[in-house]
């Protein structure tokens, strides 16, 4: 019985994972060197959340994707994301970097959700990644949830099973490769997704075309959200320096390599 869900997926862009990242200090605080030139993707865990949302809403309901990031970069990323799942885009033209305070992001997102026309908060499922690949804090969604008064929250979610009575069972990752299984009476709820169980959907050009009719206007409408300095101040941001002296062991028979490794394991 997912017909009624109104799912808002919070997710922004992060650098494509294989890019070389280097911190720099700018007037607004730390950032990444060549940040605007780095190819970007939708934050992977938020991406999983979006696919799960689309899957849930396939039999009814609606999905919004709420993204805060530089408008030009978001436009680019949307050309890939738009082909994956049906959604309506809500854009905030603001910072998407990892050094932005989660508190600031949460406030901006919560205000944007409050402004979504047609959103029924009693049917709200607030989705997102359980952490971003930039800040990696795992705190924004909970704060957005609190601002919206949502008391049922789950993090590290890999599965949601909706039951006939509108309740749903959620599996959250816990220590040691296990899951905490909970049953929630129904929306509203916050779900911070881990990987989930769905594969990445194929690129669907028709979907892309349909999404695009709303994406471009949403991008054009996007209001700038200026960063606020707040009380967070960075003393330094550095790449790890330690480079190990790697001892190369070549031309040793496998049995001797095995013996060497065993001695090391036992040491």
């Amino acid at each position: 019985m997912s017909a009624g869900f109104h799912i808002v997926v919070c997710g922004s862009l992060v650098p494509d994972p294989l890019q070389t990242l280097e911190p720099i200090r700018g007037p607004q605080g730390p950032g990444l060197k060549n940040e605007m030139m780095l190819p970007a993707i939708l934050d992977p865990w938020a991406g999983h959340a979006l696919f799960e949302a689309a899957n849930l809403a396939a039999s009814g309901g609606k999905v919004w994707l709420l993204s805060m990031g530089p408008k030009a970069k978001l436009q680019q990323v949307m050309m890939s994301v738009a082909q994956k799942a049906p959604f309506e885009l809500v854009v905030l033209d603001g910072p998407a970097g990892g050094f932005t305070d989660a508190h600031f992001t949460a406030r901006a997102l919560a205000e944007a959700i409050e402004g979504i026309a047609g959103l029924d908060r009693s049917r709200l499922l607030l989705f997102g990644g359980w952490q971003s690949a930039s800040r990696g804090a795992g705190s924004t969604l909970q704060m957005v949830g609190e601002r919206l008064g949502v008391l049922d929250q789950f993090q590290g979610v890999d599965e949601i099973r909706v039951q006939d009575d509108g309740a749903f069972v959620v599996k959250e990752r816990v220590e040691g490769g296990g899951y905490l299984v909970s049953r929630c009476a129904g929306p509203p709820a916050v779900l911070g997704w881990a990987t989930g169980n769905l594969p990445e959907p194929p690129n669907n050009p028709q979907l892309g075309m349909a999404n695009m009719r709303l994406i471009m206007p949403a991008l054009q409408r996007a209001e700038p959200v200026p960063a606020e300095p707040g009380g967070l101040s960075f003393a330094s941001v550095e790449l790890p320096k330690a480079r190990r002296e790697t001892r190369l062991v070549k031309d040793l028979p496998p049995a001797e390599v095995a013996a060497d490794i065993l001695a090391w394991i036992k040491s």
């Binding site: 804090a137 795992g138 705190s139 909970q142 704060m143 609190e146 929250q153 220590e175 905490l180 707040g230």
Partner: peptide, 23 residues
């Protein structure tokens, strides 16, 4: 920063009008 506290602390920070830094 275990799973139980990581889930709840940000919301608590919000309720207290405070800030949070994790991990």
């Amino acid at each position: 920063a275990d799973s139980r506290l990581s889930r709840v602390l940000p919301g608590v920070a919000q309720r207290l009008g405070g800030r949070i830094d994790t991990h």
